[in-house]
Design a protein around this nucleic acid. Sequence first.
DNA 1: CGAGATTCATGTGAAGTATACCTTTAGGCTTAA
DNA 2: AAGCCTAAAGGTATACTTCACATGAATCTCGTA
Length: 402
Amino acid sequence: MGTQLDLNNYFESYLKKEPLFRNKKVLQINYTPDDIPHRVNQINSLAAVLAPTLRKEKPSNVFIYGKTGTGKTLVVQHILEKLLEMARNKQIPLKTIYLNCKLKKIADTEYRLIAELAKAMGREVPPTGLPTDEVYNIFIKIIDQKEQILVLVLDEIDRLVEKTGDEILYNLTRLNSHLQKAEISFIGISNDVRFIENIDPRVKSSLSEEELIFPPYNAEELRDILKKRSTIAFKEGAVLDGVLEKCAAYAAREHGDARRALDLLRVAGEVAERSDADKVTQEHIDKAEERIEKDRVLEIIITQPKQSQCVFYAILLKLENTDQKIETGEVYETYKDICIQTGLAPLTQRRVSDLLSELDMLGLINGKVISKGRYGRTREIYLTIPKDILDKIKTKLKEELL
DNA sequence: CGAGATTCATGTGAAGTATACCTTTAGGCTTAA
DNA sequence: AAGCCTAAAGGTATACTTCACATGAATCTCGTA
């Protein structure tokens, strides 16, 4: 009875409470503002490159570099959107596909990438069983049905090449020679600036006819961005002075990641709202940071296959007390124990070694291969996750595994 | 004492295996003429 | 006889295993000063 009443009261007071947000969407990652500050040059350059599509000419391939959260994806999508709109009005057959290669199970092999492209064009391809050439043929056939220009955006392309080699890029660039009517241009987006140096020179020249660099935002620019968005997102006076500055400073520390800054501000707002505060304060930002990190890690972990989770859990257990660093052998031993407990068939150490590399790439751990001379050679493993959220992650992982 | 050989514990590459799934094909059954 | 369904055959991608070899500095060995 009591709880019923409490609940009613709770909802009542929830409704009465003045929300801090006016329009939270503005702070969410998929929001595309009309006005992108401090990226005028990049926008203009990219627009200049892509403009020929409106004359039904194939635009040059572009390569874009920049760290995460420097607005690469945002700018590209913004321009493509405008371009598409214009093309629609003028009856120009333009089609764009955006693909993020980082997402596991979406495009981490050549086969899956092409399959995904075909799917984006409206043709489902089975997950396995077909020869890769066949999938290419399907894709070629479907886009070559009519005259059109296709702009293909491959986000985080460095991840893909790292996993599968650069042959795939070569195949992609040669795609045009198989097409009669349609034409394809590529926009490659990479977080790694050195990426293009290490690929086949033939591919390099054709894929990066144009290059575009997105430098990190500095604290001032970040503050500017936050300011613009927060005036739309929050009620007036809902954000205490200095909060935006702190957000900007935090994010600037992380190589000027605007996405992070916005996330931080949004979550801080949510935290503030939940704790009944009438203003967003600096303390809320600290809490927000913790929560974001926890969510990020959890998000990665739960989308990981069981075996990887198990390996990661083993690392957590080991590092919980040891605090310093551990080695592959120790991890493998605990991993096997966990497998026995959970009834999971243990993988070989060879495979676990690969899984460890993957966890490294995901940024959950930090592995360094070192030689200890007489005492062999191993991978030293550190956690990259702050200690304070370790417990929560551990419990979550525990229920996930059992 | 120092140069070279040895050694350890695991990294790493290549090739093989198991599994899941695809298309094609052949056989058998049904159906319509 | 033509059409349709099903099961087997033949093929592929992917995740994993097996085998074999590569690594690289601490330690050992042994010739030499």
